[in-house]
Simulated assay, not measured.
Amino acid sequence: MSNYKCVFDEYNRLAQSLGIDKLEPSKKCLVEELVKQASFLLVELDILKEQISTYGAIQINKNGRQKQTEASKHYNRTLSTFSSLMKNIHTIIGKSSDDGDDELEKFLKGLS
Rank of each mutant, 00 (worst) to 15 (best):
M1A: 08
N3P: 10
K5A: 06
K5I: 08
C6Y: 06
F8V: 13
D9G: 02
D9T: 05
Y11Q: 01
Y11I: 04
N12T: 13
N12H: 14
L14Y: 07
A15S: 12
S17L: 11
S17Q: 10
S17K: 14
S17W: 09
L18N: 09
L18E: 04
G19W: 12
I20G: 02
K22H: 15
K22L: 15
K22I: 15
L23A: 03
S26M: 12
K27G: 05
K28F: 04
K28A: 05
L30M: 13
L30S: 11
L30A: 14
E32Q: 09
E32G: 03
L34K: 10
V35M: 02
V35R: 00
K36C: 13
A38W: 01
S39F: 10
S39H: 09
L41D: 14
V43R: 10
E44Y: 11
E44V: 15
L45V: 05
L45H: 00
I47N: 01
I47W: 03
K49I: 05
I52K: 00
S53D: 09
T54K: 15
T54L: 14
Y55K: 07
G56K: 00
G56D: 00
G56I: 00
A57P: 00
A57M: 01
A57R: 01
I58W: 00
I60M: 03
I60Y: 03
N61Q: 12
G64M: 02
G64C: 02
G64F: 01
R65L: 07
R65C: 04
Q66W: 04
Q66T: 06
Q66F: 05
Q66N: 05
K67L: 05
Q68L: 08
Q68C: 06
Q68F: 04
T69M: 07
E70F: 13
E70S: 15
S72G: 04
S72M: 06
Y75M: 02
N76Y: 02
T78A: 15
S80A: 13
S80M: 08
S80P: 00
T81S: 02
T81M: 03
T81Q: 02
S83T: 15
S83P: 05
S84Y: 09
S84Q: 12
L85T: 13
L85D: 14
M86Q: 13
I89A: 06
I89G: 10
H90S: 11
T91R: 09
T91Q: 10
I92V: 12
I93G: 06
G94N: 02
G94P: 00
K95P: 04
K95A: 11
S96I: 15
D98A: 06
D99Q: 08
D99R: 07
G100C: 00
D101Y: 13
D102R: 02
D102F: 01
L104S: 11
E105A: 03
E105H: 03
K106C: 11
K106F: 06
F107M: 11
G110F: 06
G110D: 08
G110E: 05
L111F: 01
S112Q: 07
